[in-house]
């Protein structure tokens, strides 16, 4: 039996570990660094802690600081329903909605990070984040619910168990891609990095320094790592696989998803946020709805056991 605090500590450590791995993979993709890439995120984190903090004229300190702290907290809360070694910290009848709700709370947090410092580039970045959010939120909801539909349950462990015969990625490729794309967009990373774009001097991140920058950057990579683990659980059969024990397979699949996400995401150009909504609503919403329809018909035909 796990004690509750041991379990919480384990899940937090898993989240931070996945975040560190993602940050290292990201650095390898950007700079072509070797094994040193694993040390570099830790080193820049320590540097952030020692750095002198900057502030702006008349910021809204309460909302700004709350939002900075909220980003890593929400990323770790989303880990609560991600399987770590065959079980989840929190197993409810609505795990998938929990995961999405923690991501959605980032809407509020990131907009506030943009609004808080009373600075124009930062605010523009916050609004860019919302503009992208309006685009991908609906396709993401359809993608997540498609996995729940195939399993007949919103519980993560049930979704993993329902893939014992066939991984969901085979029948739900569109949902899989949309899920990973939305994770990148929630972390405003890769092709969705316009809210923190160089054309607006770093956008939402422009006025962050010291521990606040560390919190936000850590939250972003933890969310990406958690999403990679969740994608492995929802679409790649979780821990199922031959010879090796389940947690090892789960980890290997998560690392594979991380590598693919970084490899593809860093090769795509940054999407202009004013183009995102039309693309998402004219292409992705119909595509994810069709995907849900196909899965619903397969469920009726008894394809998922």
């Amino acid at each position: 039996m796990w004690g509750l605090w041991t379990a919480v500590g384990l899940v937090v450590a898993a989240g931070l570990g996945l975040g560190l791995v993602f940050a290292a993979a990201d650095r390898v993709a950007l700079t072509g660094a070797g094994p040193k890439a694993l040390v570099e995120p830790v080193r820049s984190a320590l540097r952030s802690l020692l750095e002198q903090r900057r502030t702006t004229l008349a910021p809204d300190r309460l909302l700004w600081r709350t939002a900075c702290a909220a980003v890593p907290v929400l990323a770790l809360l989303s880990m609560a329903v991600v399987p770590v070694g065959d079980r989840t910290l929190l197993s409810t009848s609505a795990d998938l909605v929990w995961f999405n709700a923690m991501e959605a709370l980032l809407w509020a947090a990131v907009w506030l990070i943009g609004w808080g410092p009373n600075a124009v580039h930062s605010l523009v970045g916050g609004y860019r984040f919302l503009a992208q959010g309006v685009a991908y939120e609906l396709p993401l909801m359809f993608a997540i619910i498609t996995a729940g539909l195939g399993a007949g349950s919103l519980r993560t462990t049930d979704v993993v168990a329902a893939q014992s015969d066939l991984w969901f990625v085979v029948t739900m490729p569109v949902a899989f891609v949309v899920f990973l794309g939305s994770a990148a967009a929630f972390a405003f990373w890769g092709p969705f990095a316009a809210p923190a774009g160089a054309d607006i001097a770093g956008g939402v991140l422009s006025e962050l320094s010291g521990v606040e920058r560390l919190l936000v950057e850590a939250g972003r990579v933890v969310l990406l790592g958690a999403s990679a683990a969740m994608a492995a659980a929802l679409f790649l059969g979780g821990g199922s696989g031959p010879w090796l024990p389940d947690p090892v397979w789960q980890l290997l699949k998560t690392l594979l998803v991380t590598a693919v996400l970084v490899g593809v995401g860093r090769r795509l150009p940054v999407l202009r946020p004013d183009r995102a909504v039309e693309l998402a609503w004219m292409v992705l919403v119909p595509a994810t709805l069709l995907q849900a329809l196909v899965v619903a018909l397969l469920v009726l035909a008894g394809a998922y056991g």
């Binding site: 909605v97 929990w98 709700a101 959605a104 609004y127 939120e137």
Partner: peptide, 24 residues
């Protein structure tokens, strides 16, 4: 009532964010 709880959190957060869009 987990489902109602997380759906309330999700919808209300998005609603407030959309309100921020309308503000501008």
């Amino acid at each position: 009532l987990v489902y109602l709880a997380v759906v309330t959190a999700l919808m209300m957060t998005i609603e407030m964010a959309i309100m921020a869009v309308f503000m501008i």
